[in-house]
């Protein structure tokens, strides 16, 4: 499944009202580690297609949602389930670290 790009406008529709759990990657163009983690996020989107929705939000273009979730570092990954944030990872971490959270959430 392709990665979905969310904005402040469609965040509620695409993320909070999603039928399946969602991983949102908050990123920006000027952030090196965001670039570093990008291929990992793409792989996860493919491998968990149908079970987990993987979205990206550009924090430069969308100031409201990151503020709402108190984001003061990127990349930050927030996992949503049933409209609620249930877990969070900050920084460019290895795939296995992200997967361990995904597995817990999908359980």
């Amino acid at each position: 499944m392709a990665i979905c790009h969310v904005t402040d406008q469609d965040f509620e529709e695409k993320v909070l009202k999603s039928d399946i759990p969602v991983l949102v990657d908050f990123w920006a163009a000027w952030c090196g580690p965001c670039r570093a983690i990008a291929p990992v996020i793409e792989e996860l989107a493919e491998e968990y297609a149908g079970k987990l929705k993987v979205c990206k939000m550009n924090v430069d273009e969308n100031p409201i949602t990151p503020g709402k979730f108190g984001i003061r570092a990127i990349p930050t990954l927030i996992f949503f389930k049933g409209g609620q944030p249930v877990d969070q990872i900050t920084g460019a971490v290895a795939k296995s670290t992200i997967e361990s959270v995904i597995k817990r959430i999908l359980d």
Partner: peptide
């Protein structure tokens, strides 16, 4: 960490 504690100024400075 991620809530004001950072190890990357270019990421989080803004």
């Amino acid at each position: 960490t991620g809530k004001g504690v950072s190890y990357c100024a270019t990421c989080d400075g803004p």
